[in-house]
């Protein structure tokens, strides 16, 4: 794989929480507009990896390059400006802001003019119609599923070229899961997606490549089409 404009390259990433070594020499790469699934058991270090990518946690060593930019050491908002978008585990929308403001702040912070905010909001409403109906509700008053949709919408409003999602379907009813999966599928080919996902079937169907994390180390990776379902399942489930 060549280092073209928008490729993510993670090289020998290590992370410690105090004395416990969480990420061990994690290396992988993903090409432009590719979809990468990160699989692993609870506690394998998936969220930690994503937080390191976003700059929310400092890595102990290793490098994270996005395109030509070395991300290590940059604060999260600078990484957002290079094209990363982040949907955290547990949604973490701004509960005190309205639905619209949750989207607006993302658009505004990444340089959208006042006049572009409406367009940005209508764009995410087209993906998640429920957000249009709820536009003036406090984020905190939304249901879990609605919050998850808002969280994805908010990340999209930063206009990412690489969307990072941490278990977007966790704890959500099937009909909304389906909507979220459709949206993610529709984003594929347009932007790169790094997806942490417990539903193995969905992960396999949507991703181009996968990596499996276990105890903070990459133990398996490959093209999703060639994934050995049972073998991977034994790595992922308890």
């Amino acid at each position: 794989m060549t280092l073209t404009a928008m490729t993510l390259t993670v090289d020998a990433l290590n992370q410690h929480y105090g004395s416990s070594h969480i990420l061990r020499n994690v290396s992988f790469a993903m090409a432009e507009r590719q979809c990468l699934a990160v699989l692993g058991r609870n506690g394998a270090g998936k969220t930690t990896l994503l937080r390191c990518l976003m700059g929310l946690l400092p890595a102990s060593s290793g490098s994270i390059r996005y395109g030509m930019v070395e991300l290590a050491g940059l604060p999260p908002h600078r990484r957002i400006r290079t094209g990363l978008g982040y949907v955290p585990q547990g949604r973490e929308i701004f509960t005190n802001l309205t639905v619209r403001q949750n989207v607006e702040i993302a658009a505004r912070a990444t340089g959208a003019a006042r006049s572009d905010v409406d367009a940005a909001f209508e764009e995410v409403v087209a993906l998640f119609p429920v957000l249009g109906e709820m536009r003036n509700r406090r984020g905190g008053d939304l249901s879990g599923g609605q919050q998850q949709q808002l969280s994805i919408a908010r990340a999209l409003a930063t206009r990412p070229s690489l969307l990072i999602l941490d278990e977007p379907t966790e704890g959500i009813q099937p009909s909304i899961v389906q909507r979220i999966e459709e949206v993610i599928a529709s984003l594929k080919q347009r932007i790169a997606i790094l997806l942490v996902e417990q539903y193995l079937d969905f992960a396999r169907s949507i991703s181009d490549r996968y990596v499996v994390l276990s105890r903070g180390a990459v133990i398996e990776s490959g093209a999703s089409a060639e994934m050995d379902h049972d073998r991977i399942k034994s790595f992922v489930s308890v």
């Binding site: 999260p76 403001q101 702040i105 993302a106």
Partner: peptide, 25 residues
């Protein structure tokens, strides 16, 4: 104002404000 929006967001969740592109500093 946008500043007010940013202030309220940072007040509530500093990390996520950063992760939607707000320079919290």
């Amino acid at each position: 104002t946008p500043l007010g929006l940013f202030v309220r967001a940072v007040t509530e969740n500093r990390d996520m404000a950063e992760c939607v592109g707000v320079s919290t500093r």
